[in-house]
């Protein structure tokens, strides 16, 4: 959490190709210690490859990677500082949930009693206590995902690399995940999380790293997207009053094509939150029965869409 301290993850000019396919072209990034940072990008933009390099499984063709102050490729210090949860992973299906975690603890060379204590603690944390003696193959997809998260946390990692951790989770578990990650960050853990559920990331991340075609998108470009005018959805109980007010105040209303049929919502374009507050005050003052005014999409989604536009 300390400002100005060394970043927990640093990548400089990282590049990695698989044969003819250039998965990661040029990645420069810094992830602040104690932050939750989103890794966002379209399918095939190199997120998983980048995470593999950060986890020390893949050697970059060029550039350098540093996690927790060391090269994850060569250093046991860095390796024991990383918790990694891959996007697709299997489970040792004959092992019970408890055995999976104690095995991982042993693989990280934790003393047996500490490993057992940590296992109990983590099972409680991801709400799998009642499945402690269940074979891993009997778990549902979401439960396996939670087990995967517990597995990534077994070695008390100060740096957590999560590749699509929310996939397969029910809404309740997603909220739990968000709370857990925020709490870990508050305790000084650095979390780098890739996900496609942008609305969810929006609520928990401090920073975002955008990947497009294997390159990090520059922060200036990002800044530009976030200061763009965003669309807000305005819902009122009286469509006619809204129309009159809009005409009087020269507010351009756009049809809301995504709204359910029969709704009385329209879209407006606003520069920032202050503009939204002014618009709302004006509408209410004019007697328009406003039910809600909210951004159509989150900041991340907005930025993501501009990446996507670039892709086409």
């Amino acid at each position: 959490m300390t400002e100005g301290s060394r970043p927990a993850i640093v990548a400089r000019g990282v590049r990695r190709a698989f044969g003819q396919v250039l998965a990661v072209d040029h990645v420069d990034m810094e992830v602040r210690t104690g932050s939750v940072t989103a890794l966002v990008g379209p399918n095939g933009s190199g997120k998983t490859t980048l995470l593999l390099m950060l986890a020390g499984l893949l050697r970059p063709d060029a550039g350098t990677v540093e996690v927790a102050g060391a090269d994850p490729a060569s250093s046991a210090v860095a390796r024991s500082a990383i918790g990694w949860m891959p996007d697709t992973f299997g489970t040792w299906d004959s092992l019970t949930v408890t055995e999976v975690l104690t095995t991982m603890a042993a693989a990280y060379r934790l003393p047996t009693d500490l490993g057992r204590a940590r296992t109990t603690e983590l099972l409680r944390l991801v709400h799998l206590e009642e499945f402690a003696a269940t074979p891993a193959h009997a778990l549902s997809r979401g439960q396996k995902q939670r087990l995967g998260l517990a597995r990534a946390l077994i070695n008390y990692p100060p740096v957590l690399l999560l590749d699509e951790p929310a996939s397969g989770l029910d809404p309740r578990s997603r909220v739990d995940l968000r709370v857990l990650l925020r709490r870990l960050a508050a305790g000084g853990v650095t979390v780098l999380v890739s996900s496609h559920v942008l609305a969810e990331l929006d609520e928990m991340v401090d920073d975002a790293v955008f990947l497009s075609r294997g390159r990090t998108v520059s922060s200036e470009a990002l800044l530009a997207t976030t200061t763009q005018r965003r669309r807000w959805r305005l819902r009122s109980l009286d469509a006619e009053a809204l129309q009159h007010w809009a005409f009087d105040h020269s507010v351009t209303l756009y049809p809301d094509n995504d709204a359910p049929v029969g709704g009385t919502s329209v879209l407006v374009e606003l520069a920032d939150d202050a503009a939204a507050a002014r618009l709302l005050a004006s509408a209410v003052a004019a007697g328009v029965p406003v039910a809600s005014l909210a951004p159509v999409s989150g900041l991340l989604e907005q930025a993501y869409m501009s990446l996507d536009a670039e892709r086409r």
Partner: peptide, 20 residues
């Protein structure tokens, strides 16, 4: 959910082959 999730891990050694 009250337990502290972060404790200092033991200082790792660089040994790569152990019976354990």
């Amino acid at each position: 959910m009250t337990t502290d999730t972060q404790q200092a891990p033991a200082t790792p050694s660089e040994r790569t082959f152990t019976w354990q």
